[in-house]
């Protein structure tokens, strides 16, 4: 991730038209990481109806993601890691770095990991072609469509073990989930209309309605 910076009042700050550049390296956020972080950052809130619901604290999640995924950067605060996490002593110094600068790196990382609205629109468009009757596939398939087709054929539609799933980048996993919902929607559209539940009593017993209305 690269962030353009400039000096303001003698301090380095992120600036889209800055003359300098700083970069940071993040490890890919896997599904396993994401589950673990969500678990660590979630808390219970009350929703209407008096029920309790677990919600993820977005700010803490972001901080934990940095602890988990930031591997190195060009800032003069060395990143030290142990057992897959940033060490406590290291974070004590990272936490003292100018907030907006760290936030700029986190923003870049989020953008890289997120499935954008553009991605969503392309996948929706291509899934209409992919799941149509007599479909012969999609030309110039989106990354999500390609992932879906590959995993679908290789692993008999997500016959992935939990371990394999945990190692999958969370972005890929999200796209697969989105494609699954598209497939479901397509199947619903294609499904034959349901037989009527209305029963007609005849002299010889009971039969299903044929849906014909007489006398209108």
């Amino acid at each position: 991730m690269t962030v353009r910076t400039s000096r303001v009042d003698g301090f380095v700050m992120p600036s889209s038209d800055g003359s300098d550049e700083e970069w940071a390296t993040f490890k890919v956020l896997t599904v396993g990481d994401n589950w673990m972080l969500e678990d660590a950052c979630s808390y219970e809130v009350q929703v209407p109806g008096g029920k309790m619901r677990r919600e993820v604290d977005p700010h803490e999640m972001r901080r934990m993601t940095i602890k988990r995924c930031l591997v190195g950067w060009t800032l003069d605060v060395p990143i030290e890691r142990e057992h897959g996490w940033m060490t406590q002593a290291c974070y004590a110094r990272v936490g003292k770095v100018f907030g907006s600068l760290v936030d700029a790196f986190a923003d870049q990382f989020d953008k890289e990991m997120a499935v954008t609205e553009d991605d969503d629109a392309i996948m929706t468009r291509q899934s209409l072609v992919l799941f149509a009757k007599n479909s012969k596939g999609v030309v110039g398939a989106h990354e999500g469509v390609r992932l879906y087709c590959n995993y679908g054929s290789f692993e008999d539609k997500f016959g992935l073990s939990g371990d394999e799933l945990r190692k999958m980048p969370v972005r890929d996993f999200t796209m697969l989930r989105m494609m699954l919902s598209r497939e479901g929607a397509a199947q619903q559209r294609q499904a034959a209309p349901k037989a009527s539940n209305t029963r007609i009593a005849t002299g010889k017993g009971i039969r299903r309605s044929r849906g014909v209305v007489v006398g209108r």
């Binding site: 301090f11 604290d57 700010h59 803490e60 972001r62 901080r63 990272v94 936490g95 003292k96 770095v97 100018f98 907030g99 907006s100 760290v102 936030d103």
Partner: peptide, 13 residues
């Protein structure tokens, strides 16, 4: 005064 990352997260929370 400028804020550091920890302070930023704390205030936002």
């Amino acid at each position: 005064r400028l804020w550091n990352y920890d302070e930023m997260v704390g205030l936002r929370k």
